[in-house]
Design a binder for these strands. Structure first.
Length: 318
DNA sequence: AAAGACATCAACCGCACTAGA
DNA sequence: TTCTAGTGCGGTTGATGTCTT
């Protein structure tokens, strides 16, 4: 073979640029149902006009349920700086030390904030950053400050302990953007809604929730909706989150009682059920839910109905 | 208010690495 | 051993938002 390498896909036949919510949903749906053993084949199987690499990137950097969004805390920034001293631009290695952070995100933070910040200080990590300075430096200070310390990690109200506790440091193998433990083979572990609640907030944390104009967006509109809820009523929002934390167990149990599933079927059914719930939630938040009750609060009160594949086809067809 | 400069970050590009035939 | 396909990684780009004049 020559030096040049065949392109991974025909650029004329694949869509490029920002992902639409529909594409996001399609990708999430497919990966949750079938996993992603083969990224190259995935777009075709999922009906996406995207390059496999693009799908992989989108999943790893954005759609993965365990991806942590929002401002980098001071601790995280210091960790990055420290690791960068020893590892250099090994972003994926650095990412493996930061729970839920992706190499791309870290790279961006380094290039946009940390590098500049350190340059005038000759490589010294500032010990007493004023919050003001951090805010200037932190990209998304404007996005969510509801309960956070200045530009730091997103902190949640204390009454929400449990499901929404700040994520603990995971073993690196399970967090690295490139080694996500929900990646390989068969079906992806369904993100339970406790995690998803966290994930959702992380989504919210980083994005500009005021922007909801364009049809094609970089960010799922889930963010806007969630923020609308938040702005409408804080307590309602937190109640909803509370309910998210508990609904899963309750619903699985109630389904087991109500339904005719045999005990053998239980575990698989529960997974399927969680899966459907998560997807249903996404549908609602993405505004793709057309036939069911749109009341968000009902999420925690209604039994999960299996998603109807035809509905996806109808909704997602160009 | 408008225009230009600057900042941010998602996404793309292409090379490197690895496994399997 | 060589070749090929698939995937990972790091650098770069471009669209968009924000700030400044």
């Amino acid at each position: 073979m020559g030096k040049g390498r065949a392109p991974c896909c025909d650029k004329d036949k694949v869509k490029r640029g920002p992902w639409s919510p529909q594409e996001d949903l399609r990708l999430i749906t497919f990966i949750q149902r079938h996993g992603h053993e083969n990224w190259r084949a995935l777009p075709k199987q999922a009906g996406l006009l995207r390059c496999g690499k693009s799908c992989r990137l989108r999943w790893i950097n954005y759609l993965r349920p365990d991806v942590k969004r929002g401002n980098f805390s001071k601790e995280e920034e210091e960790t990055i700086i420290r690791l960068h001293e020893t590892l250099g631009n090994k972003w994926s290695k650095i990412a493996s030390h930061l729970a839920g952070r992706t190499d791309n995100e870290i790279k961006n933070v380094w290039n946009t904030h940390l590098k500049k910040r350190l340059a005038p200080k000759n490589g010294k990590i500032p010990q007493n950053d004023e919050s003001k300075e951090i805010c200037m430096v932190s990209s998304s200070c404007s996005s969510i400050t509801i309960v956070s310390s200045p530009c730091g990690k997103r902190n949640l109200p204390s009454h929400n302990s449990g499901p929404f506790e700040e994520p603990k440091e995971f073993p690196s193998s399970s967090i690295s953007s490139s080694n996500s433990n929900i990646t390989n083979s068969s079906q992806v572990n369904v993100p339970n809604l406790e995690n998803h609640g966290d994930s959702l907030l992380n989504f919210i944390g980083v994005y500009d929730w005021k922007n909801n104009t364009s049809e094609e967006v970089n960010k799922p509109e889930i963010l806007d909706t969630a923020f609308d809820i938040l702005l409408e009523s804080d307590s309602d929002f937190w109640d909803m989150l509370d309910s998210l934390g508990t609904f899963q167990r309750d619903k699985i149990q109630s389904n087991e009682v109500e339904g005719n599933q045999s005990p053998d079927f239980g575990e698989e059914y529960s997974k399927e059920n969680e899966n459907n719930k998560w997807l249903q939630y996404l549908e609602i938040e993405l505004g793709l839910e057309v036939t069911k009750n749109e009341n968000h609060n009902n999420l925690s009160n209604t039994a999960a109905e299996p998603l109807v594949p035809e509905m996806y086809d109808m909704l997602l067809k160009p």
